[in-house]
Design a protein around this nucleic acid. Structure first.
Lengths: 160, 160
DNA sequence: CGAAACGTTCAGCATTGACTGAACACAATG
DNA sequence: CATTGTGTTCAGTCAATGCTGAACGTTTCG
């Protein structure tokens, strides 16, 4: 791995870490986005990321669950191959709406908690709820629009 | 603070904490969204959040810098009053686009790092860069649309 | 001037959690 | 059956960091 590649991998690690995932998850995803060949074994990742096998195993589980990487096998080869396929993007973007959903739900529960207050006292939280509800609806729509446009212009198959 | 209010405050603390801020920042913001009166002194917050004065001071600084709360003073009163005004929402939403910008920039630097690779090897990261660039542009547009609609349809900050 | 009220700073504490590395489970191979 | 290669689990370690509480600076009164 060159110095520039290492910087990219490390930056991705920090970026993902600052949004709830672990640094290792970001590093692994970053590496799988630029590595050659695009499919890597766990041993490859241990070597490339200088991490323990345990970390690779646990992180691969997380990233797979999040839909950001894919595990595949080959006949006559017991090893698993990891890759960051194009579909991973869709999965990643689907999470965009979840952020707003979470905040909206918290706001709703908060409004329940102060249901007996006068309207003036509730308006701040109501407006917050409205904003998050709007974003929750519109951001995935933006994602869909992008995926639709992209699918149409390139012929690449779209995902559900 | 009732049990339901406490749950809301705590939930907001966890939510903000999972996106890079501190739990205390989320708690303070949450409390300022539902408290009555809407303006609270540092001493009020120490009492309500059961936190140290140092934590309140530092957290207020962070939230002020992020534009999520406002500090105001009154003549003949040395105390500062904290509140979560409607404008705080705008500031909060402006950050929505920054997330994508950050990832796009990381992707661009990554592409520089692998500039000498064959196109097939670069395509994964290129697509990622394109997606983030799109989101970076469109999400703020969605925010603007919401703010515009809200301002135009009500004329006042009254929520449905 | 003192004294009290208010806000800030910072060293220290405690907690969290990411990562390591060894033990383990399992399958393929000779 | 033993051995080797692969993936998983988990107790332990260590660094990061959020919070406390005391010391400090500043302003406002009596």
């Amino acid at each position: 791995m060159t110095e520039g590649e290492s910087a990219f991998v490390e930056e991705m690690g920090q970026a993902l870490a600052s949004y709830g995932m672990t640094p290792m998850a970001g590093r692994m995803w970053g590496w799988l986005l630029i590595c050659d060949p695009p499919e890597q074994t766990a041993a490859d990742l241990v070597e490339a990321l200088q991490a323990s096998r345990g970390a690779i195993s646990g992180t691969a589980r997380i990233l797979t669950a999040a839909g950001m990487i894919r595990r595949s096998t080959r006949r006559g080869d017991r090893r698993e191959y990891f890759s960051a396929p194009p579909e991973a993007l869709d999965s990643f973007l689907e999470n965009a709406g979840r952020i707003y959903r979470r905040f909206r739900e918290i706001a709703e529960r908060g409004l329940d908690a102060i249901a007996d207050r006068p309207p003036a006292s509730r308006s701040r939280l109501e407006e917050l709820r409205d904003v998050f509800a709007f974003m929750e609806q519109e951001v995935p729509a933006v994602v869909d629009r992008f995926l639709h446009d992209r699918a149409g212009s390139t012929g690449r198959k779209e995902s559900a």
